[in-house]
Design a protein around this nucleic acid. Structure first.
Lengths: 193, 193
DNA sequence: ATTAACTGCATCGGATCTGTTGCAGTTATG
DNA sequence: CATAACTGCAACAGATCCGATGCAGTTAAT
């Protein structure tokens, strides 16, 4: 309820904003301290244009975080965390999130300060995540005594590690990666019985 | 064979260097873009003193990475990865590493460029890590078909997540954290049989 | 105790980045 | 087509940071 306001931009300008956000992600993920000039160049835009849409540098960062967080919410929603069978939901959500997080890694690892839109969205995602895990536990997929908050942290860590892309898994499709994440989450590295 | 050379510093100066490195870790972990002035202040030292020991800012960063990497090697060695029973070694190494990595998080997550001392040390650690995992697999602790490189990545991720310190586990001793990491690594979140 | 190392302070030049403004030219939109 | 929105370019002031240097005072070492 804070920045989706400002009456519609011209189709023209809207493209610029998207180009800027995408360029920011690309550039900042390689060098978090990159200058506005570098971002502008990557976006194919003059530096002043960025300042017209985003007052401060921080405003750009915030918008980037919000935009990415919204996409992540969508990725989770699409997996029907409340209705689909837990294992199905887990797989679908994982694959979706891997895709989004792969494209917006920098923006999503940004420390969202409390009160921001991004922070609220991430909290929402966190809750939905716990929901899925609870449903999975009810289906005996997860140990009854397990601490779901720890399980969630492990899940997040596995997601992060998955798209860290080692030389090995270049060009592996998202579904395969998702399957590995979930298998590891549920069974670890120990011998299968 | 590159920088441990320079004849011995005065006991005096050696303390300064240590103070600077510790301050750098502290300050940079909170703000990777912090100025030399901030680091100097945190070290209780004048900014020029830093420049006397470390020519460029990058030189300080490199020294920080090397110092931390050396401590990490020590932490691994201490766990007797080649001789102790795999499970014992794993636990001990994990506990040690958690301690070191907790104190030098920034320095250890630094992208070590190829050729640097830190890079060589990390490669060495990586090899030793694989060794322990192989020995664990020989003891049937790990599935025979498991990809040890993936297992190692998961292990690293779990270590990283462990010392991310959620509000829950403040003041939990290192051994408990280590136990949780290893348990999760070997069994995941699934039900125990 | 003498020497050499070390440090703090003040100051310098140079470089880089941010955020702003004015103007002229282009492009969408009704 | 006429207006208003949008953009690039150029130039600006202000701030910040880096790396270096000279000097005077303190501290460790032999």
């Amino acid at each position: 309820m804070s920045e989706t306001a400002a009456r519609p931009l011209r189709a023209d300008a809207e493209r610029s904003v998207r180009a800027i956000l995408e360029a920011a992600e690309r550039v900042l993920s390689k060098d978090p301290g990159a200058s506005m000039e570098q971002i502008a160049a990557a976006a194919g835009v003059a530096r002043t244009t960025i300042h017209r849409r985003f007052a401060h540098r921080q405003a750009l960062i915030d918008a980037l975080a919000s935009s990415a967080a919204r996409q992540l919410v969508e990725a989770v929603e699409d997996g029907r965390p409340d209705t689909a069978p837990p294992l199905v939901a887990l797989h679908r959500i994982t694959a979706n999130v891997l895709e989004v997080k792969g494209a917006w890694a920098f923006a999503l690892e940004l420390p969202a300060d409390p009160g921001s839109e991004a922070a609220a969205l991430h909290e929402d995602i966190g809750r939905r995540c716990i929901t899925v895990l609870e449903r999975a536990r009810a289906d005996k997929l997860i140990d009854e005594a397990a601490d779901l908050h720890w399980v969630r942290r492990v899940y997040y860590a596995l997601l992060g590690e998955s798209l860290r892309g080692s030389p090995d898994d270049t060009g592996i499709d998202t579904d395969t990666l998702a399957a590995r994440v979930i298998d590891t989450l549920l069974h670890g590295a120990g011998p299968r019985t």
